[in-house]
């Protein structure tokens, strides 16, 4: 006799079950569904009369009182770490040959501009304000695009959610706001100006990486992380 296997309808039920238990992301749902399915089939090998529902409850209990919650949380932490690594790697590229020439040149231009305009504090403040405003506009625009896309496919992928519409960098935006508020129309030393220039360019590059570069390569990163991304979308 063939061992009893779950049918497609039961697999769908398992997906629904994970959703009911607060697993929003398709990538994680898929892994848990396969786990539960294997475990239920193993139970059937011992006792083929046990109902699907009953076997499922037995398996779910093994995850403990918090259910899938810990698995979801840890998965988020792991992928956030991965995302930060991606951002950092892209950012580092701007400080490597040959891109570093452009980076340093831009820092130089900003330095002279600041030196020239440092009396007009509004202009300096504007540079920081533009940085902050463009960041929030960009984030808003990205998350809207992602929302539309998700409505089309009906699936949520954790890494994708992190890449589009992401907030962990948002806190960093407080820095330029503080600088803009505290900058005064006076003569700063060249070192301070150089530091400002570096800071502005570093922030700008960070924004570019988070808002443009990584989203534009998102498909590649997603396929790397999720081999299943190709055949379900």
């Amino acid at each position: 006799m063939h061992p009893k296997k779950l049918n497609a309808e039961q697999i769908e039920k398992l997906y629904a079950f994970t959703r009911q238990h607060y697993v929003e992301y398709y990538d994680l749902q898929t892994e848990l569904v396969d786990h539960l399915a294997n475990a239920i089939e193993a139970q059937w090998e011992q006792n083929s009369k046990r109902s699907f529902e009953e076997a499922l409850q037995i398996e779910f209990k093994k995850f403990g009182v918090f259910g899938f919650m810990e698995v979801v949380e840890k998965r988020q932490a792991a992928l956030q770490k991965k995302y930060h690594k991606l951002v950092w790697n892209e950012l580092k590229n701007f400080f490597r040959w040959p891109k570093i020439i452009g980076t340093l040149a831009t820092i130089g231009i900003v330095f002279y501009a600041l030196k020239l305009f440092q009396q007009d504090v509004v202009i300096v403040q504007m540079a920081f304000v533009v940085l902050v405003v463009s960041f929030f506009v960009g984030i808003f625009w990205l998350s809207r695009k992602n929302k539309k896309n998700r409505q089309k496919t009906g699936k949520k992928w954790l890494l994708k959610e992190i890449i589009f519409g992401y907030g962990s960098i948002t806190g960093l935006m407080n820095l330029p706001i503080q600088v803009a508020l505290n900058v005064k129309g006076e003569n700063y030393s060249d070192w301070a100006l150089l530091f400002f220039s570096f800071f502005i360019i570093f922030m700008a590059l960070g924004e570019y990486v988070v808002l443009v570069l990584i989203p534009s390569k998102a498909e590649t990163f997603l396929k790397e992380t999720y081999p299943e991304y190709n055949f379900v979308n």
Binding site: I11, T30, V33, D34, R75, Y226, P227, F231, V232
Partner: peptide, 26 residues
């Protein structure tokens, strides 16, 4: 699973996915 996901994020593990018995297996 948390342990596996952490190792994956650290680049220690990589994943493959296959379609087995009506479902995807990682």
């Amino acid at each position: 699973y948390p342990a596996l996901h952490k190792l994956e994020a650290d680049g220690v593990l990589e994943v493959e996915v296959e379609n087995v018995d009506n479902r995807l297996r990682k």
